[in-house]
Every structure is written in C-alpha cells, then in structure tokens.
C-alpha cells in the first residue's frame, strides 16, 4: 500500500516524458564531530521541458541534492548506496548518475554538456582574471568541438541571446566591468551555450535586486521555451516558485515533505511545513497584515520521528515524535509525508 503510494515505482526505468528521477538520494558528510546525513532519502522527478522548483530553508539539503546530480559535492561528502539518480541522456538512453565515478570522464561529459548550472553569486561564479569570453569559449570548445573562431562567434550569439547589449565588446571584458545582472546573464549564456537538456539554477536571483530578479526569471523562462530544456530551480522563496515552477518539491531537513504541481500545492498545501512557508510570503492582498513566521529554529540534529514535529503546531502527541511518516498520495502527481494526511485518509 505504502509502496504503491510512491510517485514512481523504484523498479522501473524512466517513463518517456521524464528527464530526471531522483530516488531515495542519501548523502553523508564526514565532519570533525562524526558523520552526519544532511540529505536523507530525497525523491522527486522532473518532466522534459518542465520546471521543478526545489524549495526549503537554508540547510534543508536542497543545494547538496542537486550538486550530487553532477558529483560536485565537497570532498568530505559521499552519495550513499541505494541512491538512484536516473537521467535521460541526449542520446536517449537512461543512465544512473549515482553509479558514475565522481572524477571520471563520463560525469565530466554530463557536466556542462547535458546538465548545466548557474549559481547564487554571479560575481563569484567568474574567475576575475579571465575575460567573460575566455570562460564561455572554454565551455563551448569543451563540449561542442568547435574551433576558436567558431566558438567565439557562438559565444557572441549567446551573449546577445541572453540580452547583453553590445556583445562584441562585452566578450572581451572582465567580470568586474559588468554589473550583477549582466554577470548573471553572462553566466546563463555559458550554461546554455552547450545546449544542455537540464539547467540547474541554484538560487540565481537571490543576490540580485528585485527588478533585475524579475528580468532574470523572465529570461530563463523565455530561453526555456526557445531551447526546450528542463529547469531545476532552487530557492528558499515560495513566491519565486509560484512564478516559475510547474512542479514543486518542498524540502525539510534532508527530505522532500511535499511534492506536486505548483498550482495545486500553492492553493491547497498538504504538509504543515508547506503551509508555514506559504504563510510567510507577503502578498498584495494582505498589505498591512502581519506575516506568520514558522515557530522555532531549525534543530541542530535531526529529531526522531517526523523531522518537523519539533516546530509543528499540529503534531500528534506520541506519534509524530516517534514514527517517521511515509509518503501519502493526494492524487497521482501529488504526495506529502505527514501523519495527519494518513489519519484523514483512514477517517474518510
């Protein structure tokens, strides 16, 4: 019963329209104080051409989970056995990225070539001592086998595609000569210059001001339409998710606690934590009203039972603190991990 509640059956491969399916991803990190498991069984999947929003507080493991896809974890971290990272390559075959050697040639081909990434701080994403062009051309030549001149032309094309004015000038400029928004555009140009099938955007707008944020979000969306890639969008901002994502996965303490189509989740959040996140967004309808923060702090160590029970106002005494909840389906594309839902289900 519980097994069938999973959005994807663990035994089969990828369905045709699915680009990426992450199943029971667990990541361990060795620290001075011992081993911790900041990502403890993450499940989500992403359809081709769709955008999945991964949302959660800092420390929820959302960034680690996506870095694990291309083996960009810190040296002290490792993906635990049993994790599956199923991905459909451009060639059409389904592969398990978790099986790739972290420094091997295969994963290097995936990085940049099939899965590209952009990061939170556009300034720090560039090396200050090379020109923008140098760093774009590097990526193009690596994955597209073009000669220097062709690569340069393509780089200029990409820069104009992401909306940089005067790309023939920009290409020879250094990162510090560009503004934050321009740098993020250039970063997107690098990421998309190799025509990847998946773009991982790790809080790409957090460090930008609000108007630039909106421009960058629009740019990503229009490029997605044009190039037909999928986007995995990481943010702590539920408002951004509502704008960009088709589906959403809400993460808390290394687990996905709710997964489903963004519209439905935003309208009828099933998990108390999702409700908390939504209540914390300011909205035009409630100007002047108080925002409701989620009570308490993120615990320093994972509590037994449901990880959220220490901050949950609706926790069932005696149960939530002891028993870890399983995924409960709301409909075939929507599930949450909460005892309250189970109770409701059995009650109905």
């Amino acid at each position: 019963m519980v097994e069938a509640a999973r959005p994807l059956d663990a035994s089969d491969g990828l369905t045709d329209d699915t680009l990426l399916s992450v199943r029971q991803l667990k990541i361990a990190i060795n620290t001075d104080e011992g081993r911790i498991v900041p990502v403890n069984g993450v499940d989500f999947s992403l359809k081709q051409g769709h955008t999945l929003g991964l949302v959660g507080e800092s420390g929820s493991g959302k960034s680690l989970s996506t870095k694990a896809l291309v083996h960009l974890l810190p040296n002290t971290a490792s993906i635990l056995d049993g994790s599956q990272l199923l991905f459909r390559t451009k060639a059409g075959s389904a592969v398990d990225l978790a099986q790739y050697a972290p420094r091997g040639k295969q994963i290097r081909h995936i990085r940049g070539g099939e899965i590209a990434m952009i990061f939170q701080e556009p300034m720090a994403s560039f090396s200050p001592v090379y020109t923008i062009g140098n760093q774009i051309i590097e990526a193009i030549r690596l994955h597209r086998g073009l000669d220097k001149k062709e690569a340069r032309n393509l780089a200029i094309d990409m820069l104009s595609k992401v909306g940089l004015s005067n790309p023939t000038l920009r290409i020879d400029q250094y990162p510090h000569e560009l503004s934050g928004g321009m740098r993020q555009r250039a970063m997107i140009a690098i990421a998309l210059s190799t025509n990847p099938s998946l773009l991982i955007a790790d809080e790409p707008t957090t460090a930008l001001d609000v108007t630039t944020q909106a421009q960058i979000l629009n740019l990503i969306r229009s490029l997605q339409d044009e190039l037909g890639m999928s986007v995995l969008f990481i943010t702590h901002d539920m408002g951004v998710i509502a704008q960009v994502a088709d589906d959403v996965a809400v993460m808390y303490m290394g687990e996905v606690v709710e997964y489903g189509p963004t519209r439905q989740v935003v309208r009828q959040p099933q998990h108390p934590y999702t409700r908390g996140l939504l209540a914390a967004i300011p909205s035009i309808d409630h100007v002047g009203g108080r925002l409701t923060p989620i009570g308490g702090d993120l615990p320093t160590t994972r509590p037994d039972g449901c990880p959220f029970h220490t901050r949950c106002a609706e926790a069932i005494p005696g149960r939530c603190a002891r028993e870890a909840p399983q995924t409960v389906p709301v409909d075939p594309t929507w599930w949450a991990r909460c005892h309250l839902l189970e109770q409701r289900e059995t009650a109905s």
Binding site: L72, G112, S127, E138, A139, L142, M187
Partner: peptide, 13 residues
C-alpha cells in the same frame, strides 16, 4: 571559490 565550482560544473578536466 565558487568560480572553481562553476568551472568544474562546465566539465573541465
């Protein structure tokens, strides 16, 4: 530095 991570994410050896 993030720039090293970014370069690694581009697939550089």
């Amino acid at each position: 530095k993030l720039s090293v991570m970014a370069a690694r994410a581009r697939g550089l050896p």
